[in-house]
């Protein structure tokens, strides 16, 4: 775990730094993908920025609403530069809705957009998991495996690193696959997006039991595994439909 990177007198928060680097690389790769697909790269990039801005504002407003009694006493603190006063769930929800509205207005609400966003997210995902490792969140259960990480004197599964590795593999695979699609299967839009979703859900489903404090239902079952299985099944079903549709179109 390395929550802070000390460079001389500067103490930089590793989590934030890694996420910023992942975000910038993600945007860069998405733009390259859009250019190669002859899609309007700037519209897509603007969509990400707008949803990010809306998400941050909504996250702050969500936090304010939850703790309204505090802010009624001191309304100006709503504008505090503190990065801690954010309600992430509400921020993500509004960010996604903003992206959908923007995409609809700009007439880019289609499978190609999902593919481009998946490219962006596939780069952001490894950065996200690495940042969790850096900040010491989402730790694994105790283990004796040789690659365990030591956490306060106890060896544990490096669950964040498993997910980091898995999502990094996806980035590499997807870059190769996009080349294949470009050469042979130009009509299969949406497959990249759904593949990313499937891969992410499959990885999380496999690694979930290794998380410390994984939520359990019915005394034994990891509830999140059921959720990931459902998303995985849905993604496969949609991919099946898309592949069959494209097959029909090709005939």
């Amino acid at each position: 775990m390395f929550p802070v990177i000390n460079i001389g007198p500067l103490a930089i928060q590793a989590q934030g730094l890694i996420l910023i680097i992942g975000f910038l690389f993600g945007i860069q790769l998405m733009n390259q993908f859009n250019k190669s697909e002859s899609t309007n790269a700037s519209t897509m990039e603007n969509m990400i920025y707008w949803s990010l801005i809306a998400g941050i504002i909504a996250a702050r407003l969500g936090f304010v609403l939850i703790h309204i009694s505090v802010f009624l006493k001191d309304p100006l603190s709503i504008f505090s530069l503190s990065t801690t006063m954010l309600d992430n769930s509400f921020g993500i929800l509004v960010g996604v809705i903003t992206a959908l509205i923007y995409a609809q207005k700009k007439e880019i609400l289609n499978w190609k957009t999902l593919d481009a966003i998946a490219i962006f997210l596939s780069v952001l995902a490894p950065a996200w998991f690495l940042s969790l490792y850096a900040s010491g969140k989402m730790n694994g259960i105790p283990t004796n495996v040789s690659w365990a990480v030591n956490l306060a004197g106890q060896n544990r599964h490096p669950t964040q690193l498993y997910l980091f590795g898995s999502s990094l593999v996806f980035v590499i695979v997807i870059l190769v696959i996009t080349q294949i699609f470009k050469r042979n299967l130009p009509q299969k839009q949406g497959i990249i997006g759904l593949s990313f979703l499937s891969w992410l859900c499959f990885s999380l489903l496999i690694i979930q039991p290794y998380f410390e404090n994984s939520p359990i239902i019915l005394n034994r079952i990891h509830s999140m595994q059921l959720f990931y299985w459902s998303i995985l099944a849905l993604s496969f079903y949609l991919m099946h439909l898309l592949l069959n549709k494209n097959y029909g179109d090709n005939q």
Binding site: I141, F211, H222
Partner: peptide, 16 residues
């Protein structure tokens, strides 16, 4: 996982 990894809650001290 349900059979082998039902994660009993462990009381372990760590600064996280």
């Amino acid at each position: 996982s349900a059979i082998n990894y039902s994660n009993p809650i462990t009381n372990f001290e760590a600064p996280f």
